[in-house]
Design a protein around this nucleic acid. Sequence first.
DNA 1: AGTTAATTGCAACTTTATTGCAATAATAAC
DNA 2: GTTATTATTGCAATAAAGTTGCAATTAACT
Lengths: 125, 125
Amino acid sequence: MKKRRNTQKQELVLEILANASHTMSAETILEAMPIKINKTTIYRILERFTESGKVHFVTGDDGRAYYALCKQCSSEHDLHNHIHFQCKYCNQIACLPYTINVPELENYEVQETQFLLIGKCKECI
Amino acid sequence: MKKRRNTQKQELVLEILANASHTMSAETILEAMPIKINKTTIYRILERFTESGKVHFVTGDDGRAYYALCKQCSSEHDLHNHIHFQCKYCNQIACLPYTINVPELENYEVQETQFLLIGKCKECI
DNA sequence: AGTTAATTGCAACTTTATTGCAATAATAAC
DNA sequence: GTTATTATTGCAATAAAGTTGCAATTAACT
């Protein structure tokens, strides 16, 4: 993969994620796009950013992927081991500023984590 | 919903999960069934058991739901706050005997949790 | 300019899970 | 026991999320 500077579409995805207060699904990002863009492109942009460590995602218990800019994540190879909260009622997923200590496991090599709390958020209580 | 004793199919689902060393997807359970059964029925049985607290599930980062008998889960309203480990290579998800302490959050009411570690398991290292 | 490689769009497709409806089976009421 | 009621199951169709192959476009490099 040759290094190339970000295209306009890639920048827009980053911008949208940067301004988001919650994680966003691919579809929501698509809707937030000010210009016409194909959904496959969105998926591919997100995939590349996830691989490069700019973006991480949590899989909600609805099975959908929710993306966020890596603001809290320190390094390129961060475990993304902060907590996410998914509200069952408004279905939003937020990144919370709480980090979970990943235990040392003999038989497993941990590369990423997904810590998801599920329940009711302040808006919906 | 009236109380009724488990049907044969429901018992079989429980039995399969009880004998499993890892969590199982709906499809895997279907394949493990010794008798003919419709996939919709599997989904509905799993849904009921999940609601009643006999079974819990984790959503893998592939978006699929993986089910397990609640062996480690103490009460009916357990948070299922033990760790799961998903191997990226063999795609198996295991319940681990490590419990994560759920932090007290001001603005959120936690009802369930999904703690997933992702990486490489002993078999695949 | 011409070559090479990355990016994007489009349509078709795969996979997982859900829904509506009819058929069946189990419990309760008589 | 027979009937009424309610839960369970099967089947076919559908929904939703994400993926794939291929052609077209765009950007960088020489």
